[in-house]
Design a binder for these strands. Structure first.
Lengths: 192, 192
DNA sequence: GCGTCTACCTAAAGCATTTAGGCAAATGGG
DNA sequence: CCCATTTGCCTAAATGCTTTAGGTAGACGC
């Protein structure tokens, strides 16, 4: 009865790797146990259930992504920061598709509020300091950027832009150009 | 042995309703059989397997959504068309969250190419006739709009914008204002 | 009314999830 | 160094979803 040294952390990490290999939806307690050469029931000492495992993978991915984003925008401003920030999401999707899918999983409100998701919003807001957008428009812009990054990654990973010209790479840079232009020229609210 | 009159179509329709009630991920052959008061195995004469069922629900949702979108943009142009088109996605998400989630499911390339997804792209491109954007920039713009609609619906349905000011409704109209402005002022490609 | 099709059935195997309870390996105090 | 406690991993078993194979009876054409 050799002890493998399971911990919640190791399970989550391995679960994230599994997600990258087989897809987040296909992450299963059985497969994870197989990889640790351990019986399935043993996982349940470290993780409440499969949903709990997936939630933890999501939180892990959000944190990893936030760390990368923080790194990317440090010391940059304006379009430079916008591009670096956006590319973090795009690169993460390519490097870790399973974790990226996990990061898009819906969390219940309390869990979400305690997640690194709030750091993402804060960093996006910080990005806007390079542009001249005051509240409450900054919030609208934050939400737009979130939607674009989220949506683009999702569509691209679903193969939405592949096998058709122009290639996805070019679209991405042109979208960032467009967003930069838009943020420089954010339309005033309609005067009621 | 009363015959209920199962058909693939009825199953897909009921599956879509089930998705709206319990979430697309929770659509299961067992539950569907329960609703028809039929044994699970009976479904397998009409549907290849659960994955096939889900794919069909996705195709159904994409088509329904495309029909609504076509209705919305008929006889409209410019910002008027943009807003009507975008609101179709937003309203669909609210009215049929399960089907909307289904519409975001990734399809394999051949299935996707034969789906109503291509109509969505065509209609989006038609929208751009109200603006002055030539190829290949039109494709970039189509992809941007797709990303925004897709991403916003997804984030909103995940509760990303709820319980925080300003409210999601206002953000949505301001985002549409911004997109309209952006399309009017689409930045030229960088001169190499 | 008969034959044929087919819609729905029963049966069974496979796999994932989850809980309950047990044994042995690690850990640390005497 | 040894024993006691903790705890990591086990076996066993129940439940539920998926899928296939083969049977039976209702619907429908002739």
């Amino acid at each position: 009865m050799a002890r493998v040294g399971l911990t919640t952390e190791r399970l989550v990490k391995a679960g994230a790797e599994l997600a990258d290999e087989v897809g987040f939806e296909q992450v299963t307690a059985s497969e994870l146990a197989r990889r640790f050469d351990v019986k399935v029931a043993s996982l349940y000492s470290h993780v409440k259930n499969t949903q709990d495992l997936k939630t933890r993978i999501t939180l892990f991915a959000l944190q990893e992504l936030a760390d990368r984003a923080a790194d990317a925008i440090a010391g940059r401003a304006g379009k430079d920061a916008l591009v670096a920030f956006a590319n973090v999401y795009r690169d993460y999707e390519r490097e870790h598709p399973g974790r990226a899918a996990a990061a898009r999983m819906r969390l219940d409100p309390e869990t979400a509020a305690a997640s690194a998701g709030v750091r993402h919003a804060q960093m996006t807001r910080a990005l806007l300091r390079g542009y001249d957008i005051a509240e409450p428009d900054a919030t609208h812009a934050v939400r737009l950027l979130g939607s674009v990054f989220h949506g683009y990654a999702s569509l691209e990973s679903a193969g939405g832009f592949s096998h058709s010209a122009p290639d996805s790479e070019e679209t991405w840079t042109r979208i960032l150009d467009a967003l930069d232009a838009l943020l420089h020229n954010w339309p005033a609210p309609p005067t009621p």
